[in-house]
Design a protein around this nucleic acid. Structure first.
Lengths: 197, 197
DNA sequence: ACTCGTACCATACAGTCGTACTGTACAGGT
DNA sequence: ACCTGTACAGTACGACTGTATGGTACGAGT
């Protein structure tokens, strides 16, 4: 069905425009018109693919989520658990231009989700997925004797995600203080504590 | 000078309206008109005290910051360092209605600061203050032998703040998963690691 | 050949936005 | 008594917002 594929491609192009605007100028610069201009299309085309702005934003959030998930799935899962876990965590840290953009967009949507049940639903769903996949990695590491046995995988995964969110916020807000080096060092320290006896 | 005091009072009333709207409906629901309506005054009155919307938002951010600082200064600094540090950290965690509101507002402004140099400036300034005061507490705890000597106070303070930010975000976004109990437990665990040899 | 759905475009509408302008009530100084 | 500055109120302006509408080009089906 080349029809359906093309349809999805057009939608994705528009969602990428949403992504770029959000990353560069913030979520409240996203309007039907700015998205149309960014994508180089007419207002009506945006409306054709997304009936309302809410629908556009919903899809925009899901687009970022999917991007982050994809990045997580593309990792090399063959090495030692500590390495795998580290790579997995680094997906969320703003350590290069690509990740700076995606974490900015994520944060913008997450904060808006505080007042939008629909966005919150998406956020919660993704978080559950990430937590459970991290927990699975931790549990697997425990089986292999590479990770301390005493901790609850699920709870530890949640905590890791929280630490990650915090580091992300600090790195974005104050990159001169919370540098890439310090951020990754913090993650490594956390992993040290998790892996050592 | 009762004149100047009244002037500041009026300004504060408007800033509290900004605070309430931001906490309940989000920062992008803040407009001159919604603030005027929330405060029960005319649009022109808001304009009289804040020439532009930017000025209003700037002052609004400073207002939250001041609120948080005040709350931190009102603490009881006489007990053991661990207790003091804990209270200090809990100022930032959304563990009751008051703190939920202030952390929501803080996050909203912080994310907007990603695209506003003026807001970012305020954020960075506050963060430096908080970090240095936390670092002072840690250093004092080290002198008293209540906190492990091996760590760098400044760096540890930054990390603590990051963890706090992350926990805050999680608790606000997903309160059913990251409960008050778990959030405070995470802080306590962190303090345990900091205090034990 | 005709029709129909898809994929758009240009434009219009009502509402809201930040901001500016004009007017006024009133307290205090001279 | 007169003037001036403060502290507002009411309203208007242009820009921008999300959304709706009407029109059109075109490939596919019958």
């Amino acid at each position: 069905m080349a029809r359906a594929e093309e349809y999805e491609d057009r939608r994705r192009e528009l969602l990428e425009a949403v992504f770029r605007i959000t990353a560069e100028r913030g979520l409240d610069e996203v309007s039907i018109r700015t998205v149309a201009a960014e994508a180089g299309v007419s207002v009506a085309k945006v409306q054709y693919y997304f009936r309302t702005k809410d629908e556009l934003l919903l899809a925009g959030f899901e687009h970022v989520m999917q991007l982050l998930e994809t990045r997580q799935q593309r990792l090399d899962y063959s090495g030692p658990m500590r390495q795998v876990l580290r790579d997995c965590l680094l997906v969320w840290l703003p350590i290069d231009a690509e990740r700076i953009a995606s974490t900015r967009v994520f944060l913008a949507f997450a904060v808006r989700a505080l007042h939008s049940p629909q966005l919150a639903e998406i956020e919660v769903k993704l978080e559950e997925e990430v937590v459970s996949s991290l927990a699975a990695l931790i549990a697997r590491g425990q089986e292999l004797g590479q990770i301390r046995a005493g901790v609850d995988p699920e709870q530890q995964a949640q905590l890791l995600l929280a630490v990650l969110d915090g580091l992300t916020l600090q790195m974005l807000l104050n990159p001169e203080v919370m540098t890439v080096r310090r951020g990754t060092a913090a993650v490594d320290a956390y992993l040290d504590a998790l892996c050592s006896s």
